[in-house]
Amino acid sequence: MTLLALQDFAVTRRGRDILRNVSLSVGTGELVGIIGPNGAGKTTLMRAALGLIDSAGHSSLAALSARERGREVAWMPQQREIAWPVDVQTLVTLGRTPHLSPGQRPKPEDQAAVDRALDRMDLLSFRDRTATRLSGGEQARVLIARALAQETPLLMADEPIAGLDPAHQIATMKIFGALASEGKSVMVSLHDLGLAARHCTRLIVLDQGGLVADGAPQEVLTAARVRETFAINAFVQDTPDGLIFQPLDVVT
């Protein structure tokens, strides 16, 4: 089953091609990492695929109505905005919005989804804390829990693990991996290629608005590709513990 299909997808803003000629599809059970240097178009790709900005070409998600889309895909923007000092429980419950009809209060199954999300993100003890008073990393985990509570087949997250401590970075990637093994799919953009190499089932490399590689981490993260796209030299080795990727130096 295809959760996202992009066909000849392109985004032009102010006469500049931000993204061009992207075709890809995401099926079930995948943890897709979107990698690329700053300004490569990672965020634009995800926002346009969701239909939040205008695009050319076809996106299966942008074609849905706003409400249907809310049940098919959860989106966690890069900007971690929590505007009001609401408690964590309330904030995570917002993830249930697309499942409620107008005026309807959250039902027991919505509460159950919220509990599962809080439990997954190790936030059960934070339930009654005020979200705006948490640390940046804790807020990021709360926002991931919000997206998880939406319980959609596809989760899209823009740099969800930036600013988390190493343990929570790994734990979050593992949660995404667990979702993938349950038959859902996760699409994340990230800059930590080491984590991308170890946890993602598939990597998509963007560079200057184009898709330059798409495949398993072993195929994509080659020394030559990394030198060309990221301008770094790196140590890459497939070990029994998984793929190890360590950037070493900038190519001059």
């Binding site: 926002r47 969701l50 939040l52 706003a66 409400r67 889309r69 809310g70 895909v73 959860a74 989106w75 966690m76 923007p77 900007q79 905005e81 929590i82 505007a83 009001w84 609401v86 904030l91 917002l94 993830g95 919005t97 697309p98 926002l143 919000r146 939406q150």
Partner: peptide
């Protein structure tokens, strides 16, 4: 509360 992007993606 979660920002315009997140709200729109939730069907608002």
């Amino acid at each position: 509360t979660l920002g315009e992007d997140a709200a729109e993606a939730m069907g608002v």
